[in-house]
Computed example of a mutant assay.
Amino acid sequence: MLEERETAARVRVEGLREEVARLAGVLEAAEIELDRRVIAREELVDALAASAAGTAAVTEAETAPAPASVPVPGSVVPAWREGLPVTVLAPDYQRILGVFDERLPAGQEPLKAREITAGLGLETTSAKVEGVRSKTRRLAERGWLVQEMSGAFSVGRRPVAVPDAGSSA
């Protein structure tokens, strides 16, 4: 009778292991889909912001400048220029730059997205890492950071040319 119960328990354990393996595959596929959708949304926001920037340039020439507002999550990352404070960035981007301030004394190796994610105190799941990588890439594109050939990021602010910034049409 004990052998029958042991066999039944062993069959149940094997069935549960198979279910866990199946669910792990489903979870991985869902994380990949989430990553793709996060990146697509961010790219769309960038494209719309670039389009709106062209329209806003004409409007700004006709109106008085608005007072500076507090950055909100999801706001556009401005191109870095001398004298521009970190406080113009949304809180998530400020936190990413804070990781570099804490972790990178002069001469230390650049950080990978997974290391930045851990430095932010987030889980290092692929979804979180890709979200941080996307934001860090955006900071590099705007001159706040430098993206190395290896895909790692380092501190090194540099001015970035903004398309159509000089046109006053």
Score class of each variant (00 low, 15 high):
residue 104 L to D: 11
residue 117 T to V: 00
residue 104 L to P: 05
residue 130 E to C: 03
residue 134 S to V: 04
residue 107 G to C: 14
residue 141 E to T: 15
residue 157 R to K: 13
residue 147 Q to C: 05
residue 68 A to E: 05
residue 121 G to D: 07
residue 63 T to K: 12
residue 71 P to I: 05
residue 91 P to L: 09
residue 113 A to G: 01
residue 115 E to Q: 15
residue 111 L to H: 08
residue 83 G to K: 12
residue 152 A to F: 03
residue 152 A to D: 01
residue 100 F to W: 15
residue 148 E to P: 01
residue 158 R to Q: 14
residue 106 A to F: 05
residue 118 A to V: 05
residue 134 S to W: 04
residue 65 P to R: 05
residue 130 E to L: 03
residue 92 D to L: 08
residue 158 R to S: 13
residue 144 W to M: 13
residue 152 A to Q: 02
residue 115 E to H: 12
residue 87 T to M: 13
residue 133 R to D: 01
residue 65 P to W: 04
residue 66 A to S: 07
residue 69 S to E: 02
residue 118 A to E: 14
residue 149 M to D: 13
residue 131 G to A: 00
residue 120 L to I: 08
residue 159 P to F: 04
residue 132 V to R: 03
residue 74 G to F: 02
residue 81 R to L: 10
residue 151 G to A: 12
residue 96 I to T: 09
residue 144 W to G: 12
residue 95 R to H: 15
residue 94 Q to L: 05
residue 74 G to I: 03
residue 130 E to Y: 08
residue 82 E to T: 02
residue 109 E to K: 11
residue 124 T to H: 15
residue 84 L to A: 09
residue 86 V to S: 14
residue 88 V to P: 08
residue 146 V to L: 14
residue 91 P to R: 14
residue 85 P to V: 08
residue 156 G to L: 02
residue 93 Y to N: 13
residue 140 A to E: 02
residue 150 S to F: 14
residue 154 S to M: 06
residue 81 R to Y: 09
residue 116 I to T: 04
residue 101 D to Q: 13
residue 159 P to N: 09
residue 155 V to C: 11
residue 116 I to A: 02
residue 157 R to F: 08
residue 158 R to P: 07
residue 124 T to N: 15
residue 77 V to K: 03
residue 140 A to L: 01
residue 110 P to Y: 11
residue 73 P to F: 01
residue 65 P to C: 04
residue 153 F to C: 04
residue 111 L to Q: 09
residue 85 P to N: 09
residue 93 Y to S: 14
residue 120 L to N: 15
residue 76 V to S: 10
residue 133 R to I: 00
residue 114 R to E: 15
residue 117 T to K: 03
residue 77 V to R: 07
residue 70 V to L: 02
residue 62 E to K: 00
residue 96 I to A: 04
residue 124 T to D: 11
residue 141 E to W: 13
residue 122 L to T: 09
residue 149 M to F: 07
residue 78 P to I: 06
residue 72 V to W: 07
residue 74 G to V: 08
residue 63 T to S: 04
residue 151 G to F: 13
residue 133 R to T: 00
residue 63 T to A: 05
residue 90 A to Y: 10
residue 104 L to I: 06
residue 84 L to E: 07
residue 91 P to H: 14
residue 110 P to C: 10
residue 143 G to S: 10
residue 159 P to K: 10
residue 99 V to I: 02
residue 87 T to Y: 09
residue 70 V to P: 00
residue 135 K to Y: 00
residue 128 K to A: 11
residue 140 A to S: 07
residue 77 V to Y: 05
residue 97 L to T: 10
residue 83 G to I: 15
residue 129 V to T: 14
residue 96 I to R: 15
residue 68 A to D: 08
residue 152 A to N: 00
residue 77 V to N: 01
residue 106 A to Y: 07
residue 86 V to T: 11
residue 148 E to Q: 06
residue 131 G to H: 03
residue 152 A to G: 01
residue 129 V to Y: 13
residue 76 V to G: 07
residue 97 L to V: 05
residue 141 E to C: 10
residue 109 E to Y: 06
residue 127 A to N: 14
residue 84 L to Y: 11
residue 118 A to R: 14
residue 93 Y to Q: 13
residue 94 Q to A: 09
residue 138 R to D: 01
residue 62 E to T: 06
residue 115 E to R: 12
residue 98 G to I: 03
residue 80 W to E: 07
residue 112 K to P: 00
residue 75 S to F: 06
residue 140 A to N: 04
residue 155 V to T: 12
residue 66 A to T: 02
residue 64 A to H: 06
residue 129 V to S: 14
residue 111 L to A: 08
residue 100 F to N: 11
residue 98 G to N: 12
residue 84 L to G: 07
